Computed example of a mutant assay.
Amino acid sequence: MFGLLCLGASLAAAAIPAHASPQSRRSDQEAAREGRIQGRLLSLREIEARVVPAMTRKGAQYIGFDFDSGTSIYTLKFLRNGSVIWVDVDGRSGRIMSRSGG
């Protein structure tokens, strides 16, 4: 029984996403910079210009972003009425891929 509980706890802990380490964030930033220089990615400013105005018109406050170099997706984060909203944007095209929360 105890072994089953330990196994369950281990599986549950593995399912919880870990925060990105400073090293992986630095790697993502470097990948984003290289992608912009090579013309493969839009700049963060271009992505923000496409998404932020529409979200702020809906009463959301822009609070920041993350970039995943593996998928080339910018995740813009907004706050509205105490709820966080995540907007995933393709860094290559600027197309909104998904929206969750709030």
Results as ranks from 00 to 15, higher is better:
Arg36Met: 14
Arg95Ala: 04
Ser21Trp: 01
Val51Trp: 01
Ile63Glu: 05
Ile47Met: 10
Leu11Thr: 09
Ser10Met: 14
Ile73Asp: 08
Gly3Trp: 12
Tyr62Gln: 01
Gly59Trp: 12
Arg45Trp: 08
Ser93Pro: 03
Gly91Ala: 07
Leu5Val: 15
Tyr62Cys: 00
Ser10Pro: 03
Gly35Arg: 11
Ser83Phe: 10
Met55Trp: 14
Cys6Met: 15
Phe78His: 02
Phe2Asn: 10
Glu46Asp: 13
Ala13Thr: 13
Val52Lys: 00
Asp28Ser: 00
Glu46Gly: 04
Pro22Gly: 02
Arg80Leu: 02
Gly39Ile: 08
Arg36Asp: 11
Trp86Thr: 13
Gly8Trp: 03
Pro22Arg: 07
Glu30Gln: 14
Glu34Pro: 02
Arg36Trp: 14
Ala12Ser: 08
Gly64Phe: 08
Ala14Leu: 13
Leu42Ala: 05
Thr56Glu: 04
Ile73Gln: 09
Ile63Tyr: 05
Arg36Tyr: 13
Tyr62His: 01
Ile73Ala: 05
Lys58Ala: 03
His19Trp: 01
Ala9Gly: 05
Lys77Pro: 00
Ala32Met: 05
Leu4Ala: 15
Phe78Met: 07
Tyr74Ser: 02
Gly39Trp: 06
Ile96Leu: 08
Phe2Tyr: 13
Ser100Thr: 05
Pro22Val: 07
Val51Ile: 06
Leu4Ile: 11
Ser27Cys: 08
Ser100Gln: 02
Pro22Thr: 05
Pro53Ile: 09
Leu76Thr: 06
Leu4Arg: 13
Ser24Ala: 11
Ala20Cys: 06
Ser98Met: 10
Gly8Leu: 01
Ala13Arg: 14
Ala18Arg: 05
Ala12Arg: 07
Leu7Ile: 15
Ala14Ser: 07
